[in-house]
Each structure stands twice: as C-alpha cells, then as structure tokens.
Design a protein around this nucleic acid. Structure first.
Lengths: 225, 225
DNA sequence: CACCCTTGCGTTCATTCTGTTCACCGGCGT
DNA sequence: ACGCCGGTGAACAGAATGAACGCAAGGGTG
C-alpha cells in the first residue's frame, strides 16, 4: 500500500482528490491537510510515501513547502497538482524532484495514469535488489516518467493531431482557418482536418464560427483560444 | 548551449567527464570543481544549467550538496555520476530532483544518451511556450527519463539494427521511408523493419511522421534526424 | 416573399496500412 | 538428444484516411 497525504486548501477539491486516490488499487489516503503548516505537522506523526501537493496554499507556496521538506531531509515523494500553467513552476518542480506535474482540471483517467506510473517506479526500484544495475535504474526512471497514453478517441492519431495544432499555431492573423484550408496546409484532406478540428472544438481548445460573404453556404472557421 | 559544471574529486576522472561532455553537441563545460565547497563557490559566480555530480566528495556527500542547493533555492539541474550502487541513494536522488543517475564505469554512448535526454527535455519545455498544456509537460517528462539504448531490448539484434541504419543512410531525398520500404530494401519483412524503426524512434535517432495521400490509412514514414 | 443557384458541410464506406499475435526455426547450453 | 531462448515473418483484426454524395444554408432574382 502506498500511503498518500493530500494537501489542498479548497475542502471540496481536497475531498475529490482523496476520493479519486482511494479508488485506485494500491493507494490509501492517510490524511488531508489544508495548509502547509498542517502538512508539516501531519508528516511528523503519520508515515507517508507520496504527497499530492497543490501549489496554491494560503500560508505558503507549494514549492516552498517542497523545498522546506528537502531541507529537513524528508525525501517523501511529491506529485504536484495545480492549475498554474507556469513554465518556471514546472522547472522548479522538476529540480525539487516531483514525480509528476498534473494540471487541473483533469479527468480521472489522467490522474490514475500518473499515480500508476509512480506505483510502477516504486515496485521496480524495490524489486531491483540492494545493488541495482544501470539498466534497472533506467527502467525505474522510465516507469516514473514514461509516456502517458492520454487516450484519444478511436479514429484519431496523435501525430496527425500535432500536425493540425502546428498549422493552427503558424496561422498569423485574427482570422481563423476553414477545415479545407487546414487540410491543404497539412497535406491531408478536408475530411481528416475536420475530424481533428471538431475534436479540438469539443475539448475546448478551438472555437468554431461561421464566415459569411460570398454566395453559397457559409464556411466554418476554426480559431485557437 | 547548455552550461555544465563537473563536480568530481578525482582529477583524472574529472578531466575525462569534462572531455566527454565537450564532445557532445550543445554542451559546454564552464568549470570543474573537486570539492563541494568549490562547487558552491563556483555556482555563485558562474552561470550553470546542469551539474555532473559525483556522490563521493572529500568534504561532503554529493546528495548533501544537492540538498544544500535546493535549500538555498538554487534549482540548477543535477545529473548524478557515481559508482555507488545504493538503492537508498537512488531514491534520495530522485526525491531531490536529479535528472539521471549514472553508474560508473560507463561507456561514452551511455553518457551521451543521458545528456542528450536532458537536452531534449530542455528544448521541449522551452518550446512549449509560457503556458504549457498537460501533454507538453508529459512529453518533456518522458524525454527526460525516456530511453536507455546501451543494451538493446530483448528481441532486437545488433546486426539487424546496423542493416536498418545502413538502409536509412543510403536514402537520399528529404522524404523518409515507410516500414514496408525499409523491409524490402534490407530483405526483411515489414514487421521486423518496424520493430527496429520503432526502437530508433523511441531513442530519438529517427522521427516518425504520417504520409497522407491516396485513399486508405496513412503510412508512417521514418527519417533520420 | 418564393424560388433557384451556389458552395461548403457532414456522413458514409471502401481502401490501405498499422500494430500485434503466434507459430516456426536455428543455435546454445544442459 | 532435448528443451529453451532469442529473433523472425505470416496472418489477422481493426484503425485512420479520403472519394463520393446528399443535404444545409446562405445570397440573388423575379
């Protein structure tokens, strides 16, 4: 059993994270803390293997808490859960040894993937014996950070999706692009481009709006948000 | 350019590490320190992105040095290079955010792989923009901890791998080759060619991209980088 | 306002390649 | 001799694409 401490100021969200964690086999929630102070106090009395850490705490930034833990020689593993899409925070987190960095909001599948990745890392390292060889260490590292199959719906391919996004990014003006235009620029058909654009629209990464003007049915144009 | 500080007490070995590093494109050695004290002093005056850290230092354990750096709020990335096959040390290192843990002695290929993995992580994160999305963070994490091609995975043969590489090298134009084409040119089946091409893709020696066109499912073409 | 004309949308379905499984084959150690 | 293990390819299920097609949604015209 991997013992988990949830650190999150918002009580409702904290409950949700705890419930999510409890649903995953091999994990148990030991306690929930709403402030950095509480978290520190809890860690002194309760054995914990993994901390689910929100960065936005009332009394201290989550990264400060992580740094304080390391200074105190506490090596408990940390998984950052935050809504801060901040590049500098990601880099700091990595340098402080967080196992993963998860952006809110997330689906249960994504959350589960990260926790299971950590569980794999743990079991591989424990199974490696006292004097692990290079390839065993490598495997453990790979398990920890290994690919997350952010399962796309059937019929969609990650590489093609990347291409569509690349085309949308290189688009300059405020005007969007129609499905036919995107298809032409990426070397695929309108049908294919449309499939991916509709997916992006449903997941909120792109907006659709009609483009009137000439004769005939209006075109639909897609624009990044 | 990624600026590197080599920390290693044995002068000969330190020189070797510095020379290895200098041979890798995109890296430059800023300085060499033989003690933890020297390393700390150097870091105060010289800008450094990555520290190659030996754990066995005369005045302090390498992990202590790492912890001291974190306490001081210094987020410089660290790659541990040591002969200590110690499970506890590996776990501590991970919790302190080291990017890799490399056992001595190692071949240049292994060393190079770890540094290139770090370079990939860095460029992906920098290329992601100021507000990275979850999948971009995931890719960066995966790049950081991804591959270890020193020992070939089971099911792969060095001779066959050489053949695949030879075929890819003789390919002239900017267009890549599909798995079926590579298989035909090397006198093997598509399945076998694909196995090796996928391995090369995972280790970053080859890139995959979809090739659209006629009706039917798109081909994936492989191209050397 | 009713009608037609134009043009792109949205969907279906044949097509082609992918990714995986599993039986085979040859070599090596017991 | 025998079994085992590492590497290969035939066969298969299904995944991703684009051609074709009927319909939807505007503008133009009387």
């Amino acid at each position: 059993m991997i013992r988990v401490l949830v650190v999150e100021d918002e009580p409702l969200i904290a409950e949700a994270h705890a419930a999510f964690t409890a649903r995953i086999e091999g994990f148990e929630v030991m306690s929930v803390a709403h402030t950095a102070q509480q978290a520190m106090a809890t860690l002194r009395t309760v054995p914990v293997d993994l901390i689910l850490l929100d960065l936005n705490l009332p009394d201290m930034n989550g990264l400060e808490l992580a740094r304080a833990l390391r200074s105190a020689g506490i090596g408990t593993d940390v998984l950052v859960v935050t809504s801060a899409r901040d590049l500098a925070a990601v880099r700091s987190a990595v340098s402080l040894g967080v196992t993963h960095y998860l952006l809110k909001p997330f689906t249960f599948a994504t959350f589960r993937e990260k926790l299971l990745g950590y569980a794999r890392y743990r079991s591989q390292l424990l199974g490696a014996g006292q004097a692990p060889a290079q390839h065993e260490i490598d495997r453990a590292f790979a398990a920890l950070r290994g690919s997350s199959p952010d399962s796309l719906p059937k019929g969609l391919d990650q590489k093609t999706l990347d291409l569509v996004l690349a085309v949308l990014r290189t688009d300059l003006g405020p005007a969007g692009l129609s499905a036919a235009e995107v298809g032409a620029r990426m070397g695929a058909s309108r049908v294919t481009a449309r499939r991916y654009l509709e997916h992006l629209a449903e997941t909120g990464q792109v907006v659709r709006s009609p483009r009137y003007g000439g004769p005939g049915r209006p075109e639909v144009e897609y624009r990044r948000v």
